[in-house]
Simulated assay, not measured.
Amino acid sequence: MEFACEEDPVIRVEAFTPGKNVSGIGIPWGVQHIRAPEAWSRTTGYRVNVGVIDTGVDFSHPDLKHSVEQGINVLHRTYLPQDDNGHGTHIAGTIAAANSLRGMIGVAPRARIHPVKAFDYDGTAYVSDIILGIDWCVRNRMDVVNMSFGMKQRSRSLLQAVDNAYHAGVLIIASSGNDGLRDDIDYPARYGQTIAVGATNREGKVASFTNRSEHIDIYAPGDKIVSAWLRGRHREMSGTSMATSHVSGAVALLLALKPGLSPHLIKSILKESAVPLKKGKALRTAGELDVMRMLKAAEKMGGR
């Protein structure tokens, strides 16, 4: 019996700018912009499990200590998934930071972050390690998986892992890439079983760096986003990575109110409730994330 071999390509986290350290106080503009605070009287993402396949998380960060679970380090199984890059900590902060006194608050401050370290200190990973991370998320019953990374080439084995997650009821949210392309987005966001995310700026316009095509499902804030960083700090960064983490947090808010929604239904709710984009440079098939409209659309669709 012959087996077809497939190369194991390198995949990169999706940050467009290296970023700069800032003082991160209160509710970042992106969290405000998607109207997450208006939903907190009804839902804070309580006990929704979010797998973050990335560079790990800074376990000692004061904004994250109430939100982070043990997770897994697929590169070194006996070690904690401690972040040695910063990207994963930034993503986790936007999703579920919860430190109103001195730090910042994320979109879903009572969601549970499960860091899955598949990326090295330089922000690169092999597809085989991503697949291990996705499989871990499925086995450990994550509700949502944030994948703020991308690559240009297709991978049959990555598609198979994404498909397995989809059929297991685990929603994968992925970034479109930062090359400013007009008719192309990165994998795995390009797979129909994921939620593909593009980035907007403060004006609600599509960010110049974001890849876009008819494959995009939703846009969210990704320009000059302040979030948690290594050693208890905060950093401003831009990229479709940052947009993706806003959507993961929003879905956590939704699932805390309506557990058990299928990935297909969540995608429909997000697309149905999106705010039309300004100055339609982007294709009109996708709009911008709005948490309150999302929750209203979910109510309208009824039931679980």
Rank of each mutant, 00 (worst) to 15 (best):
R231V: 02
K205E: 14
P81R: 12
A298F: 04
L270S: 02
E69W: 14
I131C: 06
R35F: 13
Y191C: 01
W229R: 02
L265V: 14
M151V: 03
H114G: 00
P259G: 14
R42D: 13
H167M: 10
V31E: 09
R35E: 14
H234T: 05
G204W: 15
L283I: 00
N211P: 01
M242A: 05
G260I: 14
G192C: 00
L254T: 09
A196P: 03
K224D: 14
Y187K: 01
A243F: 08
E2L: 13
F209D: 01
Y79C: 01
G56H: 07
R35A: 13
K224C: 09
K278Q: 12
G71D: 10
V48N: 10
D290Y: 09
I130Q: 04
G45L: 13
L257E: 14
D122S: 12
K278P: 12
R293C: 01
F209Q: 04
I113S: 04
H234R: 06
G150Q: 04
R102Q: 08
P37K: 12
I95T: 06
A39W: 11
L253Q: 11
A196T: 00
K65N: 07
K205G: 03
E203H: 15
F209C: 05
E2H: 15
R293M: 08
T44E: 15
Y219E: 11
T43H: 07
S213P: 07
H90I: 00
V22T: 14
L75V: 14
V68I: 13
